[in-house]
Amino acid sequence: MARSTSKDAQDLFRALWSAYSATPTNLKIIDLYVMYAVFTALIQVVYMAMVGSFPFNSFLSGVLSCVGTAVLAVCLRIQVNKENKEFKDLAPERAFADFVLCNLVLHLVIMNFLG
């Protein structure tokens, strides 16, 4: 039982990996960016758990800036992805411009909230 599960899991990961390696490079870059943002958020949460959340607004803005960045990048990835039929009409340039605008708003708010 256990062996078949682990074999399944191995198959699964192999299939996942092969499917994933087929994605275009620009999407992979976005994925890395998302991973990085999530990782940074995690570090901050761990730090908060150890040291405490005293300047709560700083902690909040730090974590939410990372989460927000990740979420926006995921949105960009969804829009740029060629396989998503829903966004056929949306030019990648337009998607990127929207992404930049949204990030701008996000980080203006963060800077305002940080202090």
Binding site: L60, L64, V71, L72, C75, E86, C102, V105, L106, F113
Partner: peptide
Amino acid sequence: YSSRLYIAYAPLVVLGTLLAALVPVVGF
């Protein structure tokens, strides 16, 4: 569920929460 739903909701939560926290009466 569609990816449009994700785009409509996820940024709203993050940005909305941050923006709401900016209003003094709401704050944390």
